[in-house]
Design a protein around this nucleic acid. Structure first.
Length: 110
DNA sequence: TTTATGACGTTGC
DNA sequence: GGCAACGCCATAA
């Protein structure tokens, strides 16, 4: 496997770990921060490999604020409960006030 | 090796 | 402003 690919995955995990409590971000934002805006899907795939690690994958959603990856968690609404326990309002796998809780790594970390 | 698929995003209608 | 289609790119079959 390419070293750069490993670095890409590691950077995804690193950024995900930096997400503040009660905040969320999108796959595209992370991909853009990693200078790979065309590889947003790979970010999602990386999260799949992050399961079992110290990565808050539940804080990463798509640009719509929709919990598209909730199926990859054990329970059907586990991801939603995790977010709600952090003070984020989630209704039917849809984050409310997404623009408020949204956390842009490129803007915050710069 | 080629084809299909997907935790996404952008563009066109 | 909402829905459909296309593009990207790594993994799986």
């Amino acid at each position: 496997m390419n070293p750069e690919t490993l670095n890409f995955f590691e950077k995804v995990y690193e950024v995900a770990r930096l997400i503040p409590y009660g905040r969320v971000t999108s796959y595209g934002a992370i991909a853009k921060y990693l200078a790979a805006p065309r590889s947003a899907r790979m970010v999602g795939y990386a999260m799949n490999g992050s399961m079992g690690k110290d990565v808050p994958a539940h804080r990463v959603v798509n640009r719509n604020g929709l919990l598209t990856g909730k199926n990859h968690f054990d329970g059907t609404n586990l991801m939603q409960q995790l977010l709600e326990s952090e003070g984020i309002t989630v209704i039917n796998s849809q984050i409310q006030d997404f623009d408020v809780v949204f956390w842009d790594p490129q803007k915050e970390l710069r």
